[in-house]
Structures are given as C-alpha cells and as structure tokens.
Amino acid sequence: MPLAPPAADPRAPRPALRLPRFGAARREAQERLERLRAPLPHSRRLTLVGAYHYSGRATTTMLLGSVLAAVRGEPVLALDGSASEGSLDAFLTDRNPAVVRDLGVLSSTPAYEEIRARTTRLPSGLEVVAHRRGHFSPNPAHQQEYVHVLAQTAPYYPFVLTDWSPLRLDRSADVVLDHTDRLILCCGTADWFLDAAVRMLTLVRGGGREDLARRALVVATELDGPSGRSLPDTFARRLRVEPDQVVHVPFDAALQSPGWELHRLRPATTQALLRLADLVTRED
C-alpha cells in the first residue's frame, strides 16, 4: 500500500520555483516535477554527509527537503543525526524548542499531530527537528531513540533527511548508516574537495557498506563563486560512482545567507535541485 502522509492544507501557499523559461530545459524541469509528485510505496531515509568543512551539506539538507516538500505538497522531515553536534538550528527562526530526544520519548505509534507539535515548519512545508545551539553532552540513549524516531515518522513523511554534522564516520555513525536508503555526499568542486570525497567514500566501503557507497549521490557545489568550469571527466570515476550520480550545483549568491528562499534561487540552481530530488525518488 502506498505511503499515506497527512493531506496538505490546500489553503497553504507553496513557494514558487524559478524554472527555465523556454526550450528543452523547461520541458525537462516540468517532467521532473510530474515524477516528483508520484506517490511513494514507503518512506525514504536519506543521510547527508560532508566531505570536509563548509561542504554545503547542511544547506543541501534544507534545500533538498524544501524542494521535495514544496513540489509534493506534503510534509518532509529533516533532523540532526549526530548525538552531540547539529547544524540545522542556524536555518531556523522562531524555532520549536523541541529536540530529537523529545520525539524519541513519544509512544511507538504517535499521531501525526503529536510529531508536528515538536517540529519547526518552514514555508516550503519542510519540518525540522534540530539540536539546540551550542555545546552539549551526547545523549547515551541517542542511537535507540534515533531508530525509534525513524519508525514513528515513517507513516507520515515520504522523506526523512538526516544531517550528519561530524566529519568522522566512526562507530557513532553506524546506526544512521545502517538505517539509510540513500547516502548523499556533499563537497565543493576544487580538487582538494574531490580528494576528501574519495576518502569519505573509502571509509564507507571500508565499513562494509559497499552498496551504500556504490549508490551514493554526490552533490558538488560551487561554494566560493562562479567558476565557469565543468567538473573534470575523472570526477565520478575517482569516486567509483556512475556519472549520473553526480549533481553539479552552480554558485548562487542567494545561498550565501541562511535565510535564503526557494523563489529567489537561480533557475540553474533549481534545475540541479530538481535533478537531485528526482534521483532520490527512484527505485533502483
């Protein structure tokens, strides 16, 4: 039976996406929008990791979640995945004070309204559960609570995006990786970013998750300004993924502030995000 998330409020405005205006690019974007609106048979668990500091990982988490929620017209959930670090709070204003642990202590079968009361909802429809800002001690029950949260939210959210803040993929990441349907690795476009991305996927493979690494999506974002250059032909081969698993996101000045809005993104940025969203919905 297809997933049946809560019905969207028909009165709630959806953010407009800036699509290419003409030609094949316009038709391609519209075709992707149609595919993205198709029902899903089950909730997809997406984990986003960064190859290095300032790799665009948290921004990509919020962007991808916002695009999926806005296009589908149904709630999508994003949450901080680490026990002791978080990045999503920086994107929230007037946030709900609840944290991931507040979801973890709910019953095994909470109503959607109980979960919604503990999330911060963005205009796109993306719902976020973030760690509080600042330093805090790891919650020793985090791993059990994280698995509990995934089970609780699966009936209501077609996509659950986990933002993994630490650069390390040590044993503390095992529970997140073990409950990941699709890994998304974020990096810049410079050569040293590629080296870091290769090391990250090597760690994933070395942990016995060859299939997760093989199917990983790689988001290469121009972070410091427009380069005008394409990614090198060897980019995907060095990462040991297929070329169509790499999404190149152009520089967009609108993303320099955490207060970006979907309708202000360049059409080329929106195109790249729609392609990424299309890839995470595919069964393969």
Rank of each mutant, 00 (worst) to 15 (best):
H131R: 02
D195A: 13
R32H: 05
F193V: 02
V99M: 08
L46G: 01
R45G: 01
L64Q: 10
G65F: 10
T281S: 09
G134R: 12
L212I: 08
A141K: 13
E283M: 01
V249Y: 08
L265W: 12
V198S: 01
T269A: 04
R45N: 11
A78H: 14
P232N: 04
A154R: 06
N96F: 04
R27G: 00
A277R: 08
R264N: 14
R118V: 01
R133V: 04
A83Q: 10
G225S: 02
N139A: 15
G188Q: 06
E74P: 03
G73L: 06
A90C: 09
L64V: 13
R209E: 06
R132S: 13
P267E: 12
P226T: 11
F136S: 09
M200A: 13
R18F: 06
L262I: 00
D244C: 02
P13W: 10
A29D: 07
A90L: 12
L64R: 09
A151I: 09
P20D: 04
R44K: 12
V204E: 02
R26K: 15
A220W: 03
Q144S: 13
R11C: 11
A38D: 07
L265Q: 10
A151Y: 03
A272W: 07
D284C: 11
G188D: 07
R275K: 12
Y157Q: 07
W260Q: 05
R168G: 14
D181R: 02
S172W: 08
R18G: 02
R14W: 05
A117D: 12
R275E: 15
R182Q: 13
V49K: 00
G73T: 09
L64D: 08
S66E: 13
P232A: 02
I115H: 13
A7I: 12
S87F: 00
V219G: 00
T180S: 09
T61L: 05
P267A: 08
G50L: 06
D211V: 00
P97I: 02
A16L: 10
P6L: 05
D80L: 00
F235Y: 12
E261F: 05
G134Y: 06
R101K: 06
S230C: 08
A141H: 14
T162Q: 13
R133Q: 03
A83R: 13
L161M: 14
R95F: 12
R275H: 11
P97E: 01
P41A: 05
Q30A: 07
T60V: 04
R18N: 13
V249K: 02
Y157G: 05
W164H: 06
P243H: 00
L185F: 08
D80H: 00
A58G: 11
A7R: 06
D181Q: 03
P13L: 07
L255C: 03
S172P: 00
A83F: 05
E210G: 14
S43K: 01
R237E: 15
H148G: 09
G207Q: 14
D244N: 14
R118M: 10
E261L: 07
S66H: 04
A130P: 07
R32L: 11
L273Q: 02
D224W: 12
A197N: 02
R282A: 10
Q245G: 08
H179M: 10
Q245P: 11
L126S: 07
Y112S: 11
S137H: 14
